[in-house]
Design a protein around this nucleic acid. Structure first.
Length: 403
DNA sequence: TCTGGGGTCCTAGGACCC
DNA sequence: TCTGGGGTCCTAGGACCC
């Protein structure tokens, strides 16, 4: 018989969320900004606003001019992303020192599973309080912690507990906590879903729960309906996942409304591909699918994608694919005008089994040698442990590579 | 709200395979 | 030539999040 002094049904999932992250880093590094409204702005929009600025109605991602109109005495500072990345690393070190079960969601928030730590570290509430104290003392930033039995409820709790707070939803009180909240508090209810729900007369989470799953499904589709109904009943089976890997890498550029030539667009694409290739190689990943994203003068969007025959991290291969996608899209662009161009790389994989391919012909043995030499060049002779020859066309028997 | 840049996940149809 | 049931992969669009 296993006897534990850990209370059953403990609320043990923590959602830790730094408050007004970029703005707080600026206030930490520039003491004269403390207590004053601070707006971190870039590209014409508000990236972050301190609570003093939020009190005046400033929000992200609000237009910069509008924000200054709302709060003329605000100090507007340019973002310093390197400083934010450093601060984030320091905070995540504290997270991982608290428990190995850390799932990062973005630069400034993460889930932590404090289950099983009771005898070592105390109750989740004690763990959360200590975490907040350490982040304040060691990194100098305010952070809010929400605690609940499920991930999504912990996230709602941290949002409700902001700023600089700690809020636990004790087991058994979930529905009392959840049902009075507006539907927009649910993770996954954005502008569109919110409008649909309100048009149907559903305003609070309690309304969703009482109206039942079938009606939600008819309103939002079966998947979304089932998901929202489960959330409204505080049911969320998702566990804290450690070691999730990025699934796509992308970069985009807003172009403004001025007319632009095909050369302008190609130059943008070249810059984006160059940046993405570097990021891909730095992350030691390869990709197989490229997606071209376009936004037109009327703000409609399309995507065009292409999956390569083999994974790559090579700038030249990516460049060729990007050019093809752009060429195919040029008629559309000429017709509707382009205000944004972007590329995403997906179908990511580790690059530990990178393939190189060359056309197969009478010089095949020579080309095989070149290919294998290329792999050894790239990864070091010891890293190439196995080579497999793959034939593409039916009927083209591929000889096995000699050992 | 005349609108940045980085992501995640889901849905749906069609081609193709066994 | 038509019919089933069980899949995978690719492409495109859309909602949502920070």
């Amino acid at each position: 018989v296993f006897v534990s002094d850990e209370p059953r049904e403990l609320a043990s999932i923590l959602h830790a969320d730094l408050d007004s992250f970029y703005a707080s880093v600026e206030q930490r590094d520039h003491p004269e900004l403390r207590g004053r409204p601070v707006i971190v702005g870039g590209g014409g929009v508000v990236l972050a606003a301190s609570y003093e600025a939020k009190a005046r109605g400033v929000r992200t991602p609000m237009n910069g001019r509008e924000a200054v109109a709302l709060c003329p005495e605000a100090v507007v500072v340019k973002p310093r992303f390197d400083a934010y990345v450093d601060a984030s690393r320091a905070v995540f070190d504290i997270f991982r020192d608290t428990t190995p079960l850390v799932e990062g969601i973005s630069i400034d928030e993460a889930f932590l599973d404090a289950g099983g730590l009771y005898r070592v570290s105390g109750s989740p509430r004690e763990i959360g309080a200590r975490l907040r104290e350490r982040v304040r003392v060691e990194v100098g930033l305010p952070i809010t912690v929400g605690i609940a039995r499920t991930k999504f409820l912990a996230k709602v709790a941290s949002a409700v507990g902001k700023p600089d707070g700690l809020l636990e939803v004790p087991p058994g009180t979930e529905l009392d906590f959840l049902h009075p909240l507006p539907v927009e508090r649910l993770w996954g209810v954005g502008a569109v879903t919110s409008r649909k729900l309100r048009d149907a007369g559903l305003f609070t989470v309690g309304d969703l729960a009482s109206v039942g799953e079938p009606l939600l499904a008819s309103l939002l589709g079966r998947g979304a309906g089932a998901h929202l109904y489960a959330l409204s009943m505080a049911r969320d089976p998702r566990r804290v996942e450690v070691g999730r890997r990025r699934r796509s890498i992308g970069s985009q550029r807003a172009m403004g409304r001025r007319p632009k030539t095909q050369e302008d667009l190609e130059a943008s694409v070249v810059g984006i591909v160059d940046r993405l290739g570097k990021r891909l190689r730095k992350a030691e990943r390869v990709c197989r699918t490229m997606i071209l994203r376009l936004r037109f003068d009327d703000f409609t969007r399309v995507t065009r994608s292409r999956t390569l025959y083999e994974p790559t991290d090579g700038t030249q291969v990516l460049m060729t694919a990007a050019r093809q996608l752009l060429d195919d899209a040029m008629p559309m662009i000429r017709d509707k005008g382009c205000t944004l161009i972007g590329l995403s790389l997906t179908n990511l994989d580790s690059n530990d089994s990178l393939q190189l391919a060359l056309p197969f012909d009478e010089h095949h043995q020579e080309k095989l040698d070149i290919t294998i030499d290329g792999l050894r060049d790239r990864f070091g002779a010891g890293a190439v442990t196995r080579a497999v020859l793959i034939g593409r066309d039916p009927g083209m028997a591929a000889p096995m590579l000699p050992d």
